[in-house]
Amino acid sequence: MKTSLFDFDLPRDRIAQAPAEPRDAARLLVVGEALADRGMRDLPGLLRPGDALVVNDTRVIPARLTGRRGTAKMEITLHRRRGGDEWLAFARPARRLREGDRIEFAHGLSAEVTEKREAGEIALRLVAEDVDAALERAGAMPLPPYIERKSGPADTDRRDYQTVYAAHPGAVAAPTAGLHFTEALLAAIEAAGVALHRVTLHVGAGTFLPVKAEDTADHRMHSEWGRVEAGTAAALNAARAAGGRIVAAGTTALRLLESAADEDGSVRPFEGDTDIFITPGYRFRAVDVLLTNFHLPRSTLFMLVAAFVGLDRMKAAYDHAVAEGYRFYSYGDACLLFPAGDKA
C-alpha cells in the first residue's frame, strides 16, 4: 500500500507536551459503530465482566546519554540491549567514531565502541562499577522529539513517562496507552469483573517514527524482545473460551499477542524477538478490543489502528479528534477501538 494513504494534517498545538493530571483525567474517544466522547475513568463501564485487559509492564530506562570522546561532545541513545552490558545505540555525531573509542559520561559511566554500523548506529559496551545504577544517574528519559524540552527531559518526566505497573527494565520508549492508568482506575476495572494480565515487550526507538518508504511493502520493522508467560497465555485462552474479549492496552501489547497467537487465535507462551508489521488486510487473531493513543501520520502505529477498524473509520475518528481538541501522541488522550460489527 502507498504510505501516503496514511498521511493527515495535524496542527502543532494538538501535540501534548505534558500528560493529563491526574493520569486518568485524559479524554477517551470511543470508536465503535459511532463515535462517542468519553473519559478514561469511563473505561470500566465500557468493558464487560469476563473481559481480559492486557498491559505491557516493560519499564523505560533513562537511555539518553551525553558524554565526551576526548574533547568532542557526544549524544548517545541506547535502543536495544544485546545482552549483559552490550547495547546497540544511535550516536551523534557518529562520523568520526571508530571501534575501540571510549566515551565518558557522568557518574562513573563510560562506553567502549565495539562496532560501527550504518546510519549513525553503533554497538557499545557500558562500563561502570554498577552499570545499571550509573545509568539511572547519568541517563535521561528518551522522550520523543515532538515533546519539546529546551533543557532536556524534566525530573517529572521520569515519573510521567512510566506506567504505574512498569516492572521489567528494557524499553527506550513508553507503552503510551498505559500512561493513562492509575492504581484507582485499575482497581475499578478489576471491580467491574475485568481481569488484568501483564506481558512484556521492550519498546524500541523506532516504534513511533514515520515510515520513509513510499510503499509499506518496502518498510523494514526493527525487532523488539517480548515475553508472554505460560500462565498468562492459558488465562487469556480461558477468558475467550468463556465468552470474554481480549482487550489490549496499547499497540505494543497487541503486537506481542498477535506474535504469540496461532492461526485459530489461541495465545501461546512466547519469548523472543518480534518484528510484526500490521497493515490493512491483516487478520487479527488474538485481540478483540484496542485501547491506544493518537498516533503520528505515516507511522506503523497509525497503519495498525487503520487495519484494526478500517482506514476510513480511523481517518474520520482523527478528524473528529482534531476538531474537538483532543491531545495527540505520547502524552495525549486515548481512543478505544472496536472492530466493525462489534456492538461494544
Score class of each variant (00 low, 15 high):
residue 246 I to L: 13
residue 237 N to R: 05
residue 302 F to N: 06
residue 84 G to W: 10
residue 334 A to M: 13
residue 315 K to R: 15
residue 42 D to R: 10
residue 174 A to I: 14
residue 146 Y to F: 00
residue 146 Y to H: 03
residue 24 D to R: 06
residue 313 R to H: 09
residue 166 A to T: 09
residue 154 A to N: 02
residue 299 S to R: 10
residue 96 R to L: 08
residue 222 H to F: 11
residue 12 R to P: 12
residue 313 R to G: 07
residue 63 A to W: 04
residue 171 A to Q: 06
residue 287 V to P: 03
residue 191 A to F: 05
residue 323 A to I: 10
residue 72 A to G: 12
residue 211 V to G: 04
residue 120 G to Y: 08
residue 68 R to F: 14
residue 144 P to H: 09
residue 325 G to S: 11
residue 125 R to S: 05
residue 156 T to Y: 00
residue 135 L to T: 02
residue 275 D to Y: 06
residue 149 R to H: 05
residue 285 R to D: 08
residue 332 G to S: 04
residue 203 V to F: 06
residue 155 D to T: 05
residue 333 D to Y: 02
residue 181 F to Q: 08
residue 311 L to M: 08
residue 199 V to E: 06
residue 108 G to N: 10
residue 336 L to P: 15
residue 196 L to P: 03
residue 73 K to W: 04
residue 1 M to P: 09
residue 236 L to A: 00
residue 99 E to H: 15
residue 173 A to P: 01
residue 51 D to H: 05
residue 14 R to M: 08
residue 160 D to L: 06
residue 36 A to T: 11
residue 115 E to M: 07
residue 183 E to R: 12
residue 12 R to N: 15
residue 325 G to A: 10
residue 30 V to K: 11
residue 206 G to I: 08
residue 91 A to K: 00
residue 95 R to A: 12
residue 183 E to L: 03
residue 69 R to C: 11
residue 291 L to W: 00
residue 289 V to D: 01
residue 273 D to H: 02
residue 71 T to V: 14
residue 333 D to R: 11
residue 50 G to I: 12
residue 327 R to P: 06
residue 292 T to C: 12
residue 40 M to G: 15
residue 227 R to T: 05
residue 123 A to K: 02
residue 173 A to D: 08
residue 169 P to K: 03
residue 7 D to K: 13
residue 266 S to A: 14
residue 327 R to Q: 05
residue 79 H to Y: 13
residue 83 G to Q: 02
residue 104 E to F: 10
residue 239 A to W: 01
residue 30 V to P: 10
residue 173 A to C: 12
residue 230 A to L: 05
residue 290 L to P: 04
residue 58 T to D: 00
residue 250 G to T: 01
residue 235 A to K: 09
residue 13 D to N: 12
residue 167 A to E: 13
residue 37 D to F: 11
residue 128 A to D: 06
